[in-house]
């Protein structure tokens, strides 16, 4: 058996690559293709049964009805905001972890960053619901300084999502900074650069591609999210909710598929832009 495999390198290669290619081609890209094809079908509005006739009706509705544009822009806005907040919060943490903390503390911090990933998404989202609820931690803090709590809404959604995806931003930046030799920082100092200058001229060029890599996670995860906004988002809805409502409530699979192509297209555009920065190598 083994020897026959040795004699037939092509068979060996086929066995090695077959399963992953099948997985990628059929289960993964096939599903995406099926999604896109479904978007071109129509459905019976009474029974919700899909009628396999080619039509662009779903896309027509998507582009002509204003509310979907509003929701798409809102979703992209939330995704950008979450990414921005994560980048700003993650940078100092990652910098401290990789360049300042002693090895023992560094290991502890790494575990602390990873720890929330072990807890269920729902538990974390409901924890934030409790904090934003009337009499919760966030609202009582706001009341203590005489402000009105934001309550459930877009603010709560952005905060919750930024919290949920923070580890996905910290880890790439941390990895990027790990690759930066300490000697470069020392050299920068020896040559008379002050800390801000070192950060701007030495650290940031290394960190920005890592940040962009992290932003792929935070941006795409936010783009597809519909659970957090249902839990803390009040009356707001994002693209994921429209997809969910059209699958679960309206039984309009073709339209749901049409809506689902928006994040795919946005993500493709984003990835194309990211490729130009060279951040793909930092992934």
């Amino acid at each position: 058996m083994m020897s026959s495999l040795h004699r037939h390198p092509r068979v060996r290669l086929g066995l090695l690559l077959g399963p992953p290619i099948l997985w990628l081609g059929v289960a993964y890209l096939g599903a995406l293709a099926a999604l896109f094809v479904t978007a071109l079908w129509s459905q019976n509005s009474f029974t919700g049964v899909i009628e396999r006739e080619w039509t662009l009706d779903s896309f027509r509705t998507l582009f002509t009805v204003e509310v979907y544009r509003t929701i798409a822009l809102r979703t992209i806005g939330v995704a950008l905001l979450v990414t921005l907040i994560d980048a700003v919060v993650a940078f100092p943490i990652a910098l401290y972890m990789s360049k300042v903390a002693r090895p023992g503390l560094r290991r502890f911090l790494l575990v602390a960053v990873l720890m929330p990933l072990w807890a269920s998404y729902l538990v974390k989202a409901y924890a934030w619901r409790g904090m934003f609820a009337e009499g919760g931690l966030v609202s009582s803090m706001f009341e203590a300084v005489g402000l009105k709590s934001p309550g459930f809404g877009l603010t709560a959604t952005v905060v919750t999502l930024a919290y949920l995806w923070l580890p996905y931003m910290i880890l790439p930046i941390y990895a990027g900074l790990e690759r930066l030799p300490d000697s470069l920082l020392e050299a920068s100092a020896d040559l008379g650069a002050k800390t801000p200058q070192t950060i701007r001229r030495v650290i940031l060029p290394v960190v920005v591609p890592a940040m962009v890599a992290g932003s792929i996670f935070t941006f795409s995860l936010t783009l597809g999210d519909y659970i957090a906004v249902r839990i803390v988002g009040g009356t707001n809805q994002l693209l994921g909710n429209v997809v969910y409502d059209n699958v679960g409530a309206a039984n309009n699979l073709p339209f749901a598929a049409a809506v689902a192509t928006i994040p795919v297209v946005v993500m493709l555009g984003y990835l194309a832009a990211v490729r130009r920065t060279g951040a793909m190598e930092s992934l």
């Binding site: 509005s45 009474f46 009805v65 979907y68 509003t70 009356t235 707001n236 809805q237 059209n246």
Partner: peptide, 15 residues
């Protein structure tokens, strides 16, 4: 107005 109109309107109501 039929139910599919109602469904669409519901998304618009929620905005």
């Amino acid at each position: 107005t039929d139910y599919s109109r109602w469904t669409q309107a519901w998304t618009q109501i929620k905005g």
